[in-house]
Design a protein around this nucleic acid. Sequence first.
DNA 1: ATTGCTGCAAACTCTTTGCAAGTTC
DNA 2: GAACTTGCAAAGAGTTTGCAGCAAT
Lengths: 144, 144
Amino acid sequence: MVNKTAVRILVEKGLKVTPQRIAVLDILLNLENHPAADTITEYLRLNYPHVPIGTVYKILDVFLEKGIVNKVQTENGIIRFDPVTEKHHHLYSLDSERIEDFYDPQLNKILEDYFSKNQIQNFKIEDIKVHLKGRFTDNLKSIK
Amino acid sequence: MVNKTAVRILVEKGLKVTPQRIAVLDILLNLENHPAADTITEYLRLNYPHVPIGTVYKILDVFLEKGIVNKVQTENGIIRFDPVTEKHHHLYSLDSERIEDFYDPQLNKILEDYFSKNQIQNFKIEDIKVHLKGRFTDNLKSIK
DNA sequence: ATTGCTGCAAACTCTTTGCAAGTTC
DNA sequence: GAACTTGCAAAGAGTTTGCAGCAAT
């Protein structure tokens, strides 16, 4: 059963609609994990047992170029991916590699106001991201 | 001429004071570049022409353990290092790999107040970092 | 003298690349 | 059929590891 949202996005971006691309985008849209390339590959192999990881990287490169995904900043040298949605921030676990989305329009407003009143010398801001580092207190297993 | 601050920090942390460690710490304290391991190695080789990069990684590992440096988050899979100083944020260039420090106690206060009033479910914040992405408007060359 | 660091080299992990065969439009 | 994507394999970049010899305490 094909993910219609994924297909629509691919068409809108003028990309050829291949089963692999649909599957990767479907994974990104549903996983909410900010997966790394090898996590995506793992999931992809449930349906396409022999996809080479190189193919996944190529798909992700195209998605990056077209603005379908963004990279998530990490400090361990492993690149992770986030489907582009509305503006949000990230919660980083100090205990694991877990990274969760954090939506907060009120905070966005406060920051925009603050920085429009307090310009930074020699720097023109285009995007503000708040990284909250701490500990999750629910019981979810750490997920990569 | 030895950097006395560097030596003091090493002694305080109970580390053996070796010329290589002094030099790496000196570079970190003076460079303000948030250098990657290979940038550090480049500078180090001005004085120690044959240091292997493996030694630099080992020194940085120890510095991380002892809290002398932190890792800087990046999105290209290259780990960069920041000597631990007072709380600050980072300006990320969208045109280059340049990353600059940004100190702003007033902003810190606003954020602390905001998040003590607005707790996040299932998450205990331990550190708040603002990442400002944009363009530098001075004439400095892009530096890694 | 003991403990721990450096230097060297090999190995490992993540990511990129080249090219032939196959797919999409 | 033209243009592009996939699959495979090899290569590249950054980082980690093991161990012998050496330096700091």
